[in-house]
């Protein structure tokens, strides 16, 4: 598969209160963004165990995104603070394990930022296209 044909698969774990609603807004407002994203709703970005990210990457995702409320807006007060501290460490873990850290993102997108959601997905898709298929994905791996 050449890189131009490659369509990355993105798993987006979105916070119920902000980013998920933001994604919804992007949809209802008919904003255009690549169809490469599969969204999953979680109650808070702080609920996402880093293991979920690895699990997704190991089972066919080319990139994983966590979406949460802006710092200070968390409905559970401190959820996104934890999420941020963890995400930084997770990036390092991924790198040590030989997984490109650019395959993982943490984004703050509020309920009203449909345009930002579309923009982020566009950017992420483009970046993943450049990175190529995820080597952890057994199907994509060359012998």
């Amino acid at each position: 598969m050449s890189k131009s044909e490659f369509e990355p698969r993105i798993v987006a774990l979105l916070c119920n209160w902000c980013t998920y609603t933001g994604a919804d807004l992007a949809g209802t407002a008919r904003m255009k963004y690549p169809p490469n994203v599969r969204t999953l709703r979680v109650m808070c970005s702080g609920r996402v165990d880093p293991a979920f990210v690895i699990f997704a990457l190991q089972n066919g995702a080319d990139g994983v995104m966590i979406g949460g409320c802006h710092i200070g807006d968390c409905h559970y007060a401190k959820g996104n603070y934890s999420s941020r501290r963890r995400a930084v460490i997770l990036k390092d873990t991924l790198e040590s394990l030989g997984i490109d850290p650019r395959r993982f993102r943490l984004e703050w997108i509020s309920a009203s930022e449909g345009d930002k959601f579309a923009e982020v997905i566009k950017k992420f898709t483009k970046e993943l296209k450049e990175l190529g298929p995820n080597p952890l994905n057994k199907g994509a791996q060359d012998a």
Partner: peptide
């Protein structure tokens, strides 16, 4: 432990740069 216990909402905008 800084990863599991967030005591006060510290100003950590610098971390965003690393994401």
């Amino acid at each position: 432990c800084p990863i599991y216990t967030i005591k006060e909402e510290r100003n950590e905008e610098a971390l965003d740069e690393l994401l």
